[in-house]
Amino acid sequence: MAFLGLRKWPTPVVRPLWPFMAASGLTFFLVSKMQDLGVKSDEWKNDPRNPYAAQIAKESASHH
């Protein structure tokens, strides 16, 4: 018998949503990698609007 619309066993939440969670993680990772590659590209490496320009310059100076 259902009491106020509640079932005897809880409805699964995570199990049917695992593909969406996996896709979200993969999408977050790939977008993060694309952003990192774009920021470090030759075109934007020395642009003053790049917030990571100082960090990239420091890394490239320490590698050479």
Rank of each mutant, 00 (worst) to 15 (best):
M1L: 11
M1F: 02
A2S: 14
L4Y: 13
L4V: 03
G5H: 01
K8F: 15
W9N: 15
W9T: 15
W9I: 12
P10C: 07
P10M: 10
T11L: 13
T11R: 12
P12A: 15
V13S: 09
R15L: 13
R15E: 11
R15G: 08
R15Q: 13
R15P: 02
P16I: 01
P16R: 01
P16S: 03
L17E: 04
L17R: 04
L17I: 02
W18M: 11
P19T: 06
P19W: 04
P19C: 05
F20K: 02
F20N: 02
F20E: 03
F20R: 03
M21V: 09
A22K: 01
A22M: 03
A22Y: 00
A22T: 06
A23L: 03
A23H: 01
S24T: 13
S24K: 07
S24V: 04
S24D: 09
S24P: 05
L26M: 10
L26Q: 05
L26P: 00
T27G: 02
T27M: 00
F29E: 07
F29I: 05
L30S: 03
V31A: 04
S32G: 10
M34E: 10
M34G: 13
M34Q: 12
M34R: 09
M34C: 12
Q35R: 12
Q35G: 14
D36G: 12
L37G: 07
G38T: 03
G38F: 03
G38A: 05
G38E: 04
V39E: 02
K40Y: 03
K40N: 10
S41E: 00
D42W: 09
D42I: 11
D42H: 12
W44L: 11
K45W: 10
K45Q: 09
K45E: 11
K45T: 05
N46F: 05
N46M: 06
D47T: 06
P48R: 04
P48I: 08
R49P: 00
R49A: 13
N50F: 02
P51Y: 11
P51V: 06
Y52D: 09
Y52W: 14
A54E: 13
A54C: 04
A54Q: 12
A54P: 02
A54K: 14
Q55C: 04
Q55N: 06
I56A: 02
A57Q: 12
A57I: 04
K58P: 00
K58R: 14
K58Q: 11
E59T: 09
E59I: 10
E59V: 08
E59K: 10
S60T: 15
S62M: 11
S62W: 12
H64W: 10
H64A: 13
